[in-house]
């Protein structure tokens, strides 16, 4: 078993929390993990990504090779497209649809959607809206984790345990909101 996952977004959008949940679950499954992330200047509102690799055998490289990502999971629609060269021919894409516009030249939404739909059958998610229903828009990253969950190679209940572990210190209510958000995202991908 080996999964290559690219997490994409804008600095400050919480992709590292998604990574942390998958990491936690994978570590508890006894799997090997490599997860490269971006620190430093780009964290100030720039494009950020994390290469996450999990396997049941030794992993050498921290970075994913071109054309070998099983999943691109993005919390921002334009950022999902930035990493297309990494997507494997049979890879999946799941992205939130809320644009984060902090630079000139952001494409119109209809053109962006058309481009996203060219990449096979992407899971397109109104993550902020769903997160609000779950209790907080801040949980949209967990909606996206849910939407991408079937392609991570890790069982949803293991990922939920990861959410419990990571948000546990913040209290029951925060954990419940994040679990609800996760499950709503998961439903979208499973239907």
């Amino acid at each position: 078993m080996q999964k290559n996952i690219i997490l994409a977004g804008v600095g400050g959008q919480g992709i590292l929390s998604i990574a942390a949940v998958i990491d936690w679950a994978a570590l508890n499954e006894g799997l090997e993990i490599r997860q490269a992330e971006v620190h430093g200047m780009s964290q100030r509102g720039g494009a950020v990504q994390s290469h996450l690799r999990i396997a049941d055998h030794e992993i050498f490289a921290d970075l994913i090779a071109l054309g070998t990502a099983d999943l691109i999971l993005s919390v921002e629609p334009l950022e999902a497209l930035r990493y297309l060269p990494y997507l494997a021919p049979d890879g999946h894409m799941a992205t939130a649809l809320e644009p984060f516009i902090n630079m000139p030249g952001y494409p119109p939404m209809d053109e962006l959607l058309a481009e996203l739909r060219k990449s096979g059958r992407p899971v397109l998610v109104h993550a902020a809206e769903i997160a609000r229903e779950a209790g907080s828009t801040r949980a949209s990253n967990m909606v996206m984790l849910g939407a991408g969950a079937p392609f991570t190679g890790i069982a949803p209940e293991k990922l939920e345990a990861g959410i419990e572990a990571l948000f546990g210190a913040k209290g029951r209510e925060i954990v419940d909101i994040n679990i609800r958000a996760f499950r709503k995202g998961l439903e979208l991908s499973n239907t």
């Binding site: 804008v10 600095g11 780009s42 964290q43 100030r44 720039g46 334009l78 497209l81 630079m103 481009e115």
Partner: peptide
């Protein structure tokens, strides 16, 4: 895709 413009830090 060519529509993917750079997103520098700010």
């Amino acid at each position: 895709p060519s529509m993917v413009v750079n997103r520098p830090p700010e």
